[in-house]
């Protein structure tokens, strides 16, 4: 199959994720959409790796997974503690960190 199709899929997934980040208020959903974007990137990397015939893309994909895992740990912890403190998971409510 033509690897370019994987790139189209990746772009589609990325767009879905970005739209989700922009329009959803629930922190968990926003978070899942960020994950979707990351995985879209992974897909693109792997596809490129295949297209160019070297392993760089795959290595970076692994990196991304590790970083994503770390991010999930920190991010979820923040969301949970914010929810505990404010009884809300809306990202619009947490707007106090400004001058």
């Amino acid at each position: 199959m033509n690897p370019v199709n994987y790139l189209y899929l990746a772009a589609l997934l990325f767009t879905i994720g970005a739209t989700g980040v922009l329009i959803r208020r629930n922190a968990i959903v926003v978070f899942m959409c960020v994950e979707l974007m990351l995985n879209a990137c992974n897909l693109a990397f792997v596809a490129f790796s295949r297209m160019h015939g070297n392993l760089d893309g795959q290595i970076i994909a692994f990196f991304t997974m590790v970083v994503a895992a770390a991010e999930v740990v920190v991010g979820l912890a923040i969301i949970v503690s914010v929810f505990r403190a404010r009884h809300s998971a809306s990202v619009d409510d947490a707007s106090l960190m400004k001058l």
């Binding site: 970005a18 922009l22 400004k98 001058l99």
Partner: peptide, 17 residues
């Protein structure tokens, strides 16, 4: 300029995109 920093995460995301 400070007004641009309105504290809403999603507006930051818009400017990022």
């Amino acid at each position: 300029l400070r007004r641009l920093q309105n504290g809403f995460a999603r507006s930051y995301a818009v400017s990022m995109f």
